[in-house]
Design a protein around this nucleic acid. Structure first.
Lengths: 206, 206, 206, 206
DNA sequence: CATGAATGAGTGTTCATTCAT
DNA sequence: CATGAATGAACACTCATTCAT
């Protein structure tokens, strides 16, 4: 993982044309697959290019560096995620909204567990720290939902939101490692943990 | 991170003599420090040897590969951990025991957050997957504690134990990332999450 | 600087039409500017095309290779040069003629010092060695001038002509490196060196 | 010629031991030969290592970068040079001293013409500009010699010294390009040029 | 046994050149 | 013709590992 630093992580060309868009999408999917199948060790730019069926040079036309590729992949996953989670935000009942978000997390994780885990790891790399919006979008959504009146009042919304995410992430990551496949089962447990936490915290504060 | 695979990860020599024992300990601590201070990127065998004040050759005398070094480091952390957690197992009250384990986890994490996080990451490397006893020791302890009559009955003790650990891990890792320093605060939240989860799961099953 | 070898260095099309002529000129000037501003390191065909405001493909339509582009640029500089030097050849007095040539050299050098220096360097590339007419045109002019009766007789006109050029080149290149800007000053010194050499050589031979 | 920048150009280890010294010497000689035989194009770190009969890794143990290797090679040539030139400084007669220096230059150049020329070229690379002491040592020697009373007084010693070197460099480089082999012949001409210049400059100033 | 010089496969990245549009 | 996306050979450099001393 030797990436040249100090370089923009933005994709090189805004893919306006259909061709480019498709190419970028292909490369990202290839990156995702290489990461899943061969792990961090096998995750080389050349491998990604090969899997995408393009020359290594092409990859570098769209992503100025390996770090940029990883960042873009993270953004992609974020976006899928965010779309699902956003629905939760629009629900009037906080409990329903939160459940929807949790379900989205569980689904995402169980669909591509290795990918999710490895991206989580990468997020801590110095080059990526700032670049990627991080889970802040998701955090914001959760913060908003936690404000709904039907949910137990939390001592600190920020911390609560962060913890909710942390709990779900811990559960899903571990589930992924153990090869769990059942969405409904994991969903049930994650919900239990989150709501259990929220209630316990609310009680604690009285 | 290019490690030759298919190689035993056991230390090369059972360090019977005092000198050797000390050396191994020094190397492990050096590895821990390099990992903490310079991250995955800077975690090279040469750097570890240098920090330990020994030749690279010596390092390879005690650890047949980088993976073995990492494995040993994990075992070391495990052991520290296990010692603390074991006390929880010996308490009669399940709630107290579980709290003790949680406290140990939180302490461990907040003491050397980066180290814990990075080791977590490495745990998934194929070479290490099987080798390291994994969190199973800890898991066993938790399983035993969950059997105590004062704790809510769980549908499946194994899954519950795993989830408890996952929840704590998620919370502590995230806390580490956010630079949290307060043991008591994090401990309170982790306890809330775990007990909240256990109760919710017990209720769910009725 | 990875140029495919064994390829004609002649421009691909004799630019009969105005448009083409202009394009070739633009490209050459772009090449000159890139070379000056970004040095050998930044002198890439893509950079040249971009600066010229044309597609990289167009550049290759007019120059079959990077070497050909460099060769053409050399020829361009040669030509500018030659025009100035030719005036010297038409003067009746040898001393005046030679002075005119020297002045032309000095001017050329101080105007675009980096360009001149870098082209000098390239001249030695194997692909360019033969292709470029070389300084032979200039050499011829100097040979002719050295024949004028008012100049000291040289043991060997060919060598003398070559040396004269070498001396001027050495002085101007060095001056360029040191950032000299005064034409008159450098001109004075170059004249001194050249005439000093001619006289000394003539004396030597008596 | 893509060298990572911002890196010390000092050799990595001061070769105190015989082995290291020999190795460094071998690598430098290998670098010189590759540069001579294959030109700038073929001058790759791998080629140098291969010619030296060592692994590429070894090369990088002694030189932290390609630029450092080039710098060291320059210093080596400098030193050989300097030793020869220093003798000229110790002669009482300025004319003799200067002649000795010129002879040294000519010899050096005709011995390994390509090497000298290519190193001259590299000297202008940004990474090397400051690092290499440059011709300043030689310049200093010449400055000192020019002070001898038997040599014509110059308007500016600094400029004169620089010009003397420039003239010799111009002549020797060109001679190298034309494949000249006769030291005595080139020496005669270089002397003529230098002394001719000095006298002419002295006269000019009266 | 300790050492660290030596190794070289493997990494990220560049850039001259081609060719389908 | 003009274009620029695509290509891939080649490069500088790293680091896990070995082995002669």
């Amino acid at each position: 993982m030797n990436m040249k630093s100090s370089r923009s992580l933005k994709p090189r060309k805004s893919p306006r044309q259909k061709r480019s868009e498709q190419m970028v999408a292909d490369m990202l999917e290839a990156a995702a697959q290489v990461l899943e199948r061969h792990g961090l060790e096998g995750f080389t730019t050349n491998a990604v290019a090969q899997r995408a069926g393009v020359g290594i040079g092409s990859l570098y036309q769209y992503f100025p560096s390996k770090a940029a590729l990883v960042a873009a992949l993270m953004r992609r996953e974020e976006d899928i995620f965010h779309a699902a989670a956003a629905k939760g935000r629009d629900m009037s009942k906080g409990a329903e909204g939160l459940s929807a978000v949790i379900l989205a997390c569980v689904r995402q994780q169980l669909e591509r567990p290795e990918l999710a885990r490895l991206l989580d790891v990468q997020q801590a790399l110095p080059e990526l720290k700032a670049e990627v919006s991080g889970p802040s979008l998701l955090l914001n959504i959760i913060r908003v939902i936690l404000d709904r009146p039907d949910l137990p009042r939390q001592p600190c919304q920020d911390v609560a939101a962060r913890d909710v995410l942390a709990i779900v992430r811990g559960l899903t990551d571990t589930a992924g490692e153990y090869g769990e496949r059942s969405v409904s089962d994991l969903y049930r447990r994650a919900t239990a943990a989150v709501f259990g936490y929220l209630e316990a915290m609310a009680t604690l504060n009285d």
